[in-house]
Structure formats: structure tokens, C-alpha cells
Amino acid sequence: MNILVTGGAGYIGSHTCVSLIAAGHDVIVADNLCNSKIETIDKIEKISGKSIIFYEIDVTEESKVEEIFLKHNIDGVIHFAGLKAVGESVSKPLDYYYNNLVSTMVLSKACIRHRVSKFVFSSSATVYGDNKVPFKEDMPLLETTNPYGETKAMSERILSDISKANEGFSVSLLRYFNPVGAHESGLIGEDPNGIPNNLMPFITQVAKGKLKKLSIFGSDYDTVDGTGVRDYIHVVDLAEGHVKAIEKLEKGINIYNLGTGKGTSVLELVETFKRINNIDVPYEVVDRRPGDIASCYADVSKAEYELGWKAVRTVEDMVRDSWRFEMGV
């Protein structure tokens, strides 16, 4: 298939491009590089051995998206492009609602106009709100706890309504949990612009000495050690889940959790990183972060049964590969 990957120069998008190419598909990347680097495209090409068509555009701009659809015979879209920091979404809600919702509407409109039948959406476990764990795809969604999560929930509703109104438009909503790790080559990984918002790049930059210490947000949650519990999934496992999702996309609306089904606390992740990589990570415990919940992990049985997909990489693999990427090994 010829697949348009929006946000394809980003963390999850770049790994998915590699996995798509390995599975025999061709990719076209659209990315505005607001939180990614153009060098990543070269690295994808180096890993895959194939050249990539790249457009530096913002997919909220309908005319520029239309140009891509006119130039290429696109079979499917995987939509990653979006702002993604929970904390920042609380302080900048308008940016998040505009960027994340408009991009989804612009892309789906182009798909309908050009009869592109396959659409995979990068959703999030945040749509479950502060629900009972493990999160299951068929459970009622509670009110989201931050604007980022709300943009994902609203995008899911938009895509579901569009699919119901357009029989030929099939959608897979992938609710994934906390991606970490990097490609085994060490060439691509999580490389945010500026100070990281996510936990793992913060850990690696502290370990490397680029940042002084790690801030752990909250130690009084009702969890094994008081710190937040998350379902950390290796980004390569996650990327392979996207390949399965678009290859096996059924008619209508399809919803899948992509995680490991196991919760790991922030402190457990930090201690595993220190042990596996034999390096210290100074940290301090600070107040809880707005919009965070205590515990979040997935029931992943549906993806295994319907897609034949299961996460196979361990937390040890995740911290080892993250450090290898940070060190440029």
C-alpha cells in the first residue's frame, strides 16, 4: 500500500515508517517539524534502504493536504500529527484543540473526497479518563482529565461519525499507552525539541548530564510506591501494531488498546534504567502534575485476538534501547 504518514518525522511516526517499509509498503511523510527534526527522514532511509517522499507542511492547512492527495495515489492514512504534552495542554488548551481537531477533520475530508478508505488514528489511553484499570475498549469513557485527552476523545467521535456517514471510510482508533525505547540501530528514538515533556527522554538526558535532575510528579498516589503507574510499551512494538492495524482494517469503526497489559511505576522505571545501564539518575519528588491520574494500564486481549499483535519487548529492552539512542551507539 501507499500510505500517508502524518507526523512521520516524529517519535512514533518515524518508527512506524520503518516498520511499514519493512512490511513492504511505501510511505509518504507529512510533518511540520514543530517537535521533530528533518534529519530523522535521512535516518529512516538509512535504516530501511529506501527513499521517502517528504512534505514539510502543517496538516491543518487544507490546500497543502489536497496537493498531496492530488499528486499521489494514496491507499491509507496513519495520522500521528498533533500536539501531545498533557501538562502543556492544560496551560495552552486553544493550541491543542485547534491543532489536533482541525488536522483530523482536514485529513478525513481529503480521504472522503479522494475515496481513501483506510484511516488509522493515533489516539491515547487518556480517553478513558480516571477509569478502573485495566482499561478495556468497550468500557464507558469517563470525562478526560486534560485538554490533550479531550482532543483525542473528540477526534475519535469525529472519525466515528464520519465513518458511519460514509460506508467506504474505515477507521482504526489505536489507544496506546506510554511509548518508550528506540530502534535497535540507535539511529532513531525520542528526540524532542527543547526540554522533554515525556519521562524517558528526561531520564536519559539527566543520566547523560544534559539536565541536572529528574522531577517525579507526586509520591502519594494509591500505587505500589506512591508514584504514578503506567503501561510502558516499546515504540517498535507500537509501530508494528500500526502496521497490523492498517493491514487488517475491517469496515466501520475499530478500536484497539496497544500496550503490554502491565503497569510499571515511575520509580520502578527509573530503578530499572539505573540497574540495566549501570548509571545514576538524580531525581526529586515534586507536586503532582495537573491532569495526571494514579494508574493506567491496558487490557490488550482484543488486539491480540483480532490483529494477531502482541507486545514482546520488555521494560529492560526499553531502557537499554533508550540509553543506546541517547548515547548515539
Rank of each mutant, 00 (worst) to 15 (best):
R175V: 08
I195W: 02
E190V: 00
L249P: 11
P290V: 13
F202V: 10
K210F: 07
G228L: 14
I233T: 00
T260N: 06
R289C: 05
P179Y: 04
N178T: 03
Y232T: 00
G228Y: 01
D287F: 14
V266N: 05
R230S: 12
V229K: 01
G252C: 10
A207T: 12
L269I: 12
I246F: 13
I195V: 14
N178A: 10
Q205V: 14
R275A: 15
D225F: 07
L211K: 00
N193M: 09
G228V: 11
G181E: 04
G226F: 05
D237Q: 03
I246K: 06
I253P: 07
V235H: 00
I233H: 03
L187H: 04
R175S: 00
G186N: 00
V286G: 14
A182H: 02
V285L: 05
A207C: 14
V281F: 15
T227H: 09
S301K: 00
G168A: 11
P196T: 07
G263D: 01
D287W: 11
V236R: 00
E271N: 15
H183M: 01
T264A: 03
I203D: 08
K244G: 10
D292R: 01
P179S: 04
L199I: 09
K262R: 03
K210E: 15
S172D: 09
V235L: 01
D222Y: 06
D220G: 02
S219V: 13
R175A: 02
E268R: 06
S215P: 08
Y297A: 13
D280M: 12
E167R: 08
F202G: 12
E271Q: 15
T227I: 09
D225M: 06
I216L: 14
V281E: 15
I253K: 00
N254G: 09
K251Y: 09
K302V: 11
E247C: 12
V266A: 11
I195Y: 01
I276Y: 11
Y221T: 11
L238S: 10
T260L: 09
K210P: 06
V180Y: 03
P290H: 10
Y232R: 01
Y283F: 15
P196L: 07
L199V: 10
N257H: 14
G259L: 05
E184Y: 04
L267A: 12
Q205G: 13
D280S: 15
C296A: 15
Y176S: 00
L173P: 01
D220L: 10
A239M: 02
